[in-house]
Structures are given as structure tokens and as C-alpha cells.
Nucleic acid binder design. Structure first.
Lengths: 147, 147
DNA sequence: CATCTGAATTGCAGTATGCAACATTTTGTC
DNA sequence: GACAAAATGTTGCATACTGCAATTCAGATG
């Protein structure tokens, strides 16, 4: 049981290091928002808030800051003028790509320290655990969890 | 690779649910602090700050709030009156115990959905991964990661 | 004793967060 | 079509988390 927690720490450490390495002057919550937009494409503010699990007002103000940093863009839709469309700028996309690349390199390095059979076993075991936890494995290349 | 991230989400979800279930009106950072104090015993403020990876001032003010909630206690040591000794109150201990119990039940429930061999495989795989990540498996019953 | 070092606190600034109130726009009902 | 209801954002208010810099107090060192 403790191994589960230890792995969690290792994963979080990897993620934190990747964000710090690429820097970009974004906080973790901000980065989570950027990843969600990158993964799911331009979307409404409320969808982003729901995906992040935060209040609408929190999302509004986070977008304010991200717009200020030139990482996302606000635009209105002609068919429904209530909604705001949030999308990544080129800089925002570049930041997410950079962090993702760094993180994957880190994880690959960790896995490379294990024998090939072990690597397969880890993936199999984690997948089984994830299914048991009633969480479907992520399908696409970009994960919502791309912390 | 994605399985690793999916598991991370599942683990965080379990932890968050446990905290929410027991409630106690503490934030996640506050709970992390309580767990550290519970796991390592009464300690100086600076040690707590280091363990949490935050600035001393952050720890100071977090302790202010926890004292206000009656979950921790501040006391000075007679031999070195610079330092502050932070310890859990009975209520603080009860809160940590409650969340831990809830979390363990949740994880056990998840594992119970898997075949026995699978359970062993998961533990083995996670341990191997943790070692590869250069993180020693936690020894004691209480983990620093007891998020 | 003077100075330096260590521990904690406080001031300041920026970010994150939720709730409640509000404005605007769309939808639904009569 | 008019009015009520719901959806979407934004803003005000309050609290919490965070780091950096300056300050206070206590030990350690010369």
C-alpha cells in the first residue's frame, strides 16, 4: 500500500520538475488550465472551470492572468454571445509542448532503469489499478492529467 | 505511459475524497502539514516548512490558522527559546486518523476489485517503479505522502 | 562585549479559491 | 410576442497559499 503513495510522490516530483525546468512563469493551476485547453481544444469558460473542478469566477480570473501573460486568448462566439471562447496562443501551445516533452523524457529515463519485462509489468499493473479505480485509461496522446 | 498518469489521477481523487469526506474544514496544504506532524512528531517550524517545501513565512501563517482551528499547538522549548515546537492537539490527531482510515478503506476497495495475483503484481510493479525513480519506499505506517 | 548565525515573525505583493450578487443573452412557456 | 426561467460570464468580498525582504529575538563565536 505504501508503494502506491511512494509512486505518487515520484510522479508529482517529475511533473513539478518539468514545469520548473521549462519555467515560463506559470503556476501549477495555470499550467493545468493550459493543458486542458491544449488537450480539448478551444472551449467555453464554464467547460474549463468544470474540467478544472473550480468555480467559474476562479476560471474567469485565471484566464485574466493567462491573457495578461499572452498564453491564452478570449473571443466571443457569434451564435451565442453569452459564451466566451478560450483558446491557446502560439506561446501557450509552445509552453505546454515544452513541459510535456520534458516530462516524457524524465519518465522514460526512469523506466529505462528497469528491465524490459519490468516495464511491461508496471504498465500492466498500473492499467489494471486504474481500471479498478473506475477510471478509464486515457486514450489520446495528451492527457488531462498531464500535470 | 498514460497509465502512469491515470493512476496518479485516481490516487489524487481518492485522497481528495477522503479529506472531503471527513471534512474538518481544512485545506489540502493544511492537511499535508497535519500529516507531517503526525508522522514525524512534534517538530520545529522550520523543519515543517522544509518538509512541506514552502517558505518559513508560509509555514508560520499556516500554523496560525491551524492553531486557530484548534488542530495544532505552539510551545517554546526551554533550552532554545528561539524555536517553536509544533505539535498536534487531540482534535488534530483525530482528524488525521479519520482521513487516513477513510483513505485506506478506499484503496482497499479498489484493490479488492482486482484478482489476488494482480494485487501482488501491482505492488511489485509500483515498488520497482518507485525504486527506479530513486525514491526509497516509505518504511513506516504513516507516509509523508499521505496526501 | 561585539558580532555573527539561526529561528521565527511581520510587511508586502501576487495568486487561488468560493460564494453571492449582478448583467447579458438565450430559451421556454403561455 | 411578452414574460419568466435558465445559462454564461463578470465583479465584489472574504479567505487562504505563496515567496521575498526586513525585523526581532536568542544562541554561538570571537
Amino acid at each position: 500500500m505504501e508503494a502506491v503513495l511512494t509512486v505518487s510522490r515520484a510522479l508529482v516530483a517529475v511533473a513539478a520538475r518539468s514545469i520548473a525546468a521549462v519555467g515560463g512563469d506559470v503556476t501549477l493551476p495555470q499550467y493545468r488550465a493550459l493543458v486542458l485547453i491544449a488537450a480539448r481544444g478551444p472551449q467555453r469558460l464554464i467547460d474549463l472551470a468544470d474540467a478544472l473542478g473550480v468555480n467559474r469566477s476562479t476560471a474567469t480570473r485565471m484566464c485574466d492572468r493567462l491573457v495578461g501573460k499572452g498564453l491564452v486568448r478570449r473571443s466571443r462566439l457569434p451564435n451565442d454571445r453569452r459564451t466566451v471562447r478560450i483558446s491557446l496562443t502560439v506561446d501557450g501551445k509552445a509552453l505546454v509542448d515544452g513541459v510535456t516533452k520534458h516530462r516524457r523524457t524524465d519518465l522514460a529515463r526512469i523506466l529505462s532503469h528497469m528491465a524490459a519485462e519490468q516495464q511491461e509489468a508496471v504498465v500492466a499493473a498500473l492499467t489494471a489499478f486504474a481500471i479498478a479505480a473506475d477510471e478509464k485509461p486515457v486514450l489520446g496522446e495528451e492527457s488531462v492529467l498531464d500535470l
